[in-house]
Design a protein around this nucleic acid. Sequence first.
DNA 1: CAGGAGAGTGGTTGATCACTCACTCCGGTG
DNA 2: CACCGGAGTGAGTGATCAACCACTCTCCTG
Lengths: 209, 209
Amino acid sequence: MPLSELHIAVRLLPIPRVWLTTHMPSPTRTLSTAEERREDVLSTAIGAFASRGYFGTTTVDVAKRAGISQAYLYRLFPDKESLFAAVVERSFERIRDSISKAAASTEGTSPEVVLSSMASAYAMLIRDQDLLLVQIHAQCAAVSVPEVRRAVRSGYARLVEYVRSVSGGSEEQVQQFFARGALCNLVVTMGAEDLDTPWATTLAAGLRH
Amino acid sequence: MPLSELHIAVRLLPIPRVWLTTHMPSPTRTLSTAEERREDVLSTAIGAFASRGYFGTTTVDVAKRAGISQAYLYRLFPDKESLFAAVVERSFERIRDSISKAAASTEGTSPEVVLSSMASAYAMLIRDQDLLLVQIHAQCAAVSVPEVRRAVRSGYARLVEYVRSVSGGSEEQVQQFFARGALCNLVVTMGAEDLDTPWATTLAAGLRH
DNA sequence: CAGGAGAGTGGTTGATCACTCACTCCGGTG
DNA sequence: CACCGGAGTGAGTGATCAACCACTCTCCTG
């Protein structure tokens, strides 16, 4: 077995164990638990999927960003589809957390104030673009990837019901909230806020307070 | 040269020339001009890119739908990027054509009427989903594909200025028009209009007249 | 009818994809 | 200390990708 021998020979070389991740789980432990790793992957994968989308992002890239091998990525998640769906769910949670904080700070006021507060919280949140881009990429992938479709629908379901209940706004007000949110997404993806043309300023007017 | 001989032998078989495309350019001509072919490709490619987006759609698929070889696709367009950008420009034109017809039918009335007419024209237009999906996929690809970014920006530039001039509406009204358009896109991609849940009906309320 | 320009294709290339397998290493337990 | 389960990986797999090239076929013109 020359191949096997070669393999052993290579393995016997003193390869230093290098941790590419900045995460140091606990002083008494050099290995992470699978659950900790999954969390790492989920948070770093957002950046990967944000820049190139579901189809354009490779699992090698995701693994590299998380500081693990691609092989181990497939022990943490069954396939690319589930991985992306998990990332999408995760980013919906982040959005809900963010606007719920804004809602809490205006508790007991009018629907208009609560909605406006949540709207600017959202506008601030997506300034780093990662969350936003994953959102839109998910919207695209939802059409042809069943698991993603499921994640997007349940994400918006929760979001709409949350906004409705916490703001106490009317149907029209809630709808308007999401319409402006969608416009916000459009403006950011085009980079229209950095443009100084009439059409761009018209679209971006007042979206950021 | 056994390979060459095989090639010739295969070529000598009486292969009937089958036109997979429905386009019959002229009775006195069995070949299309390159320009006609480009048009064919552009219109069939919309369907291809709509379902899987820029990264997920293969050039083989695009060629197959147009009824030509993948090799010839690369004679008609320099690369995949330019091809997709051309498809995006094309779909922006279709949108502009559609809403301009609606605007023409309400000429001389108030901005509100013109905008409302254009809005429902847009809502009707994207019912086949292809135009809409290419639009959103383009929005995604715009982030990482320069040529697509250019196409999307110039598309919206023209669109915004056209809506502004033809409707005579205020900044807020024009912005509102595009906000509702973006919401419309979101609703359709999720298939929310077919859902009978409170959150879905809230988002989709009144978008289609 | 000769021949050249343009239409159109088969076959290939090197890279890269998602995914798998056989394997090693580490930490804790009896 | 023996050993076992889980963390983690190197080296692939076949498939598929965008892009390219050498080539044939069709049509028009002189």
